[in-house]
Nucleic acid binder design. Structure first.
Lengths: 323, 323
DNA sequence: TTGAAAGCGATACCAT
DNA sequence: ATGGTATCGCTTTCAA
């Protein structure tokens, strides 16, 4: 590490006082041209960089928030992040982004360092609330897609019941009665999305008896579909945990020469890239990101926070080509 | 905005001194349990949050960098960003991300605020160097895919000549002699990638006489391909400006019932999602992000910066299924 | 266990 | 046009 050079060092080198240096650097008027140049030269020569901390202490407030994402490469989270970034920019905020790589260890590491860098935290967490609280004491925290027990935290809720219901309705309406599901990998347990699916099926008197777990990748979806069709060759339609899995399923079906209606979940733009374009139960990712930032803003300002349904994002069926 | 509550307010409320508050908040040992609780309660009640600036001023250095990306939703930039994030995390750095929405205005806005927030800047810029310099005085700046005139800036260079050559070689070797290209939209001018293509074609005595501009989207690629084939129905292969355009071309070709070899550029993971998987001239996005951060680290530390070929990222042909 | 005082690096106000 | 001094909010010696 290079020595830390302060404004004092520059002042000394240029043979002036601190405040003169400050004037030169900040283009304040009242300074002699020659002096200014001398100061600037000295600053450059020394490689001086003003401390953002000292500056922040004295200057009007800048607010910045931490955005915690499990995996930026997952298109769903990318979309949420982009939306949050945009919402933050609109407020003139800075966003410090942390990718926890879906690892609890990384998440903990993030939590440990985030406190001293931001004014509020927004994003996806899996650690217990006590741990979250410990590292974020005193700052607003907005959880996404996780229901906190403590009122200490605010949260953006995802409700897919209606959307999934619409998806199943649509499948049934188009003649599908043997509908399977590719859920998330089994070890994670049954998902909310499965439960929404189950309820929707029940509404039609259908049993959710063809469910297989899939790894969260295109290949995972493809493999899981092959397995599912192995057991249940009679299926004519499949609902999947997310779009990526759906895309894998779509591909597998085609390669198996099977005609199969597929409906994903997420509503990624990615779904328009494949052929046929993916029909999906779409989440408004922009809204998720924007909402989280909005809530953080209210919390930060001490204004009335959003509550109840205002914090819920509803999924909706997005009809494209695959079903 | 709520009033700003300082450590002094908490001290007063709890009837102790500042340093006692500090101890309580930072889990320092030497403090009475009861006192500590009282302080903590007071802090919570007042909604106290320590100033990150004041803290940063006193505590061991945290370094954070600004990452400037034209469009986070573009998968290519997402990958670069993810790589940069990871490289930064490995160093314990914080990354403030700015999405300039490919707009000069936003870029300027970013530049104006970034200076007071970060220790170095890394990313994609389009503004003139003088303007860049003005807002980043004194801090390291690493440009990606842009050749600076001034030594004031460092840069990561992209060299696709070899990769594109390999792509054309491969096409020729597999019997294609009528090879077209879908370049970026015409108004932007001919791209580096076009010139690499032209040279590669020349090496085989082939003329790059079937070139059309395409908008940077799947549809853009599809439309451009249709147009290109309209003029030149004899083409059997196409090289494209990037993967997204290639995917559009692939789809259009299929819908037109045309057998067509397609090679994209970028090497996105996205290319494995489509069917057939996209053959492409791949850029190592991880390396781009990692390199940029590495260079920033050296600059920051005053160590010998990387130079010459160490700063160049070579593209390489990635054979998948579409050619 | 607690408090007083010094100081981190920069800016602003008030003199000169 | 330039410099002195107070100050921002917090942590860290050093005493008590």
């Amino acid at each position: 590490m290079s020595q830390k050079i302060t404004i004092n060092d520059v002042a000394r080198a240029a043979g002036v006082s601190r405040q003169t240096v400050s004037r030169a650097l900040n283009d304040k008027g009242e300074i002699d041209g020659e002096t200014k140049q001398r100061v600037l030269d000295a600053a450059r020569e020394l490689g001086y960089r003003p401390s953002r901390f000292a500056r922040g202490l004295v200057r009007p407030d800048t607010t910045s928030i931490g955005l915690v994402i499990p995996d930026l490469l997952n298109p769903f989270f990318t979309e949420v992040a982009a939306a949050a970034l945009e919402a933050a920019r609109a407020r003139g905020w800075h966003v410090v982004v942390y990718d926890t790589a879906a690892s609890l260890t990384e998440e903990r590491g993030t939590l440990e360092v985030i406190g001293s860098q931001v004014d509020a935290v927004v994003g996806y967490f899996h650690l217990p609330e006590t741990e979250l609280d410990q590292h974020t004491r005193g700052m607003p925290v907005v959880l996404i897609d996780r229901e906190p027990h403590s009122p200490r935290f605010s949260s953006i809720r995802i409700d897919g019941a209606r959307g999934v219901r619409a998806a199943v309705d649509h499948l049934v309406a188009t003649g599908h009665l043997r509908i399977g599901m590719l859920d998330q990998a089994a070890r994670t347990g049954l998902s909310d999305r499965y439960h929404w699916f189950r309820d929707a099926m029940a509404a039609h008197g259908l049993a959710p008896d063809a469910v297989t777990g899939a790894a969260q990748s295109v290949n995972g979806g493809a493999e899981a579909l092959a397995e599912l069709l192995g057991h249940r060759p009679d299926l004519t339609a499949v609902f999947t945990f997310n779009d990526v899995i759906a895309i894998g399923a779509l591909r597998a079906a085609r390669r198996l020469g099977r005609e199969l209606a597929v409906i994903g979940f997420d509503g990624l733009q990615l779904g328009t890239v494949v052929d046929p374009e993916l029909t999906t139960v779409a989440l408004d990712t922009r809204r998720i990101g924007a909402l989280a930032v909005e809530q953080a803003a209210r919390l930060l300002a001490g204004a009335d926070p959003l509550a109840g349904d205002d914090l819920v994002v509803q999924a909706a069926l997005l009809l494209r080509e695959s079903a």
